[in-house]
Amino acid sequence: MNRRDFLKTSLAAAAAAAGSVFLGGALLNVAAAPAERKGQGGKMKILVITGSPRKNGNSSTLAEHFIRGAEEAGHEIVRFDAAFKEVHPCIACNKCGMNGECVFKDDFEFVRKHILDAGMVVFATPMYYFGISAQIKAVIDRFYAINGSIHVPKKAALLMTYADNNKRKEKAITDHYEVLLDYLGWSDAGQVIAPGVWPVGAVNHTKYPEQAYLLGKSV
């Protein structure tokens, strides 16, 4: 079976199990899934995935301010600091069938557990060599094993920091984020992009922590 046929077969099986239909490269959800997995009073679980290997990194600071705002709004926050966890890169073995058990039993199991019923997923990353950090990319690549389960309505947000001040440099990350959301059927709730911050703590003297807080407060 070639890769195209494999993807169609795997996604069709996953969609049938989840009450969805696979049509020409997209998942059309036909089940009456709760809108963005909201709980009582519009509150929801939010999974925040950070990618900075610096404990007090600037993108982590944005994540902390977002979390404070979201908690004040009454949401449940679950945080996964990818750089301090063990997440093996995907090796494209296809043993998971795009919606099953992964051959690696590592800290991604925490993400698998919490992302399914989360109403929102937040990605907080620094720009490393003009892309997202390797630590957070490894987590996103492992979404492959839960592909059929996460094609449900969710909100998402991007918190990103980088040392340069050229907006063109942002596109590698923002385009990746937007294409990922388009594929998954998630909706963008907001982006906080902080240019010109490099040393640890540099973002503290900018407007961006407040923007991250207000975004968390508003979702």
Rank of each mutant, 00 (worst) to 15 (best):
R3S: 09
M127E: 12
P89C: 05
G100R: 10
S10Q: 15
L11H: 01
L11E: 07
I136K: 06
K95A: 15
D5E: 14
I91G: 00
V87R: 04
G185H: 08
T125W: 09
A15I: 05
D182V: 00
L116G: 00
A118V: 07
G39I: 08
A73Y: 08
V200W: 00
C90I: 06
A73H: 07
E178C: 00
G25N: 09
G119A: 06
A32T: 10
G57C: 02
P153F: 04
V48N: 04
R142L: 08
A14S: 12
A82T: 12
N29Q: 13
H75D: 08
A157Q: 04
A156G: 08
D117Y: 04
L27R: 08
D175H: 13
F108H: 03
Y208M: 03
V78S: 00
F123M: 12
G19Y: 10
D117E: 15
V30P: 00
A33N: 14
E71Y: 02
V78F: 09
P199K: 07
V122P: 01
A35I: 03
A63L: 03
A17P: 00
D164M: 09
L214M: 13
L159W: 00
C96K: 09
R68N: 06
E178I: 00
G196Y: 06
V197L: 05
T161K: 02
P209L: 11
V203Q: 08
V219Y: 02
K169Y: 11
L23Q: 11
C90F: 02
E76N: 09
I150N: 01
I91L: 01
L180T: 15
V219C: 10
E36Y: 14
Y183V: 12
N99G: 14
R168E: 15
L184Y: 07
R142I: 05
A35W: 05
A163K: 05
C93V: 06
D5N: 11
A16R: 14
I115D: 02
A32M: 08
E86V: 07
V30R: 07
N204D: 13
C90H: 10
Q40C: 01
K155I: 00
D117N: 14
L180P: 00
I140L: 15
L159F: 08
E210I: 06
P126N: 12
V48F: 04
E109S: 09
G69V: 09
V30Q: 08
N58D: 11
G119V: 08
V192L: 07
A15G: 14
S60C: 12
I150K: 03
K43M: 06
N204G: 14
G97I: 08
F123H: 00
L47F: 05
K137Y: 02
L47M: 10
G131N: 15
N94R: 11
R68W: 01
L47E: 08
V139F: 02
M160R: 03
K171G: 02
G190A: 03
N56K: 15
E76S: 10
I49K: 01
I136Q: 02
N165K: 12
A118E: 04
K155P: 00
L47D: 07
F22D: 11
F130R: 10
M160T: 06
G148W: 11
G119W: 03
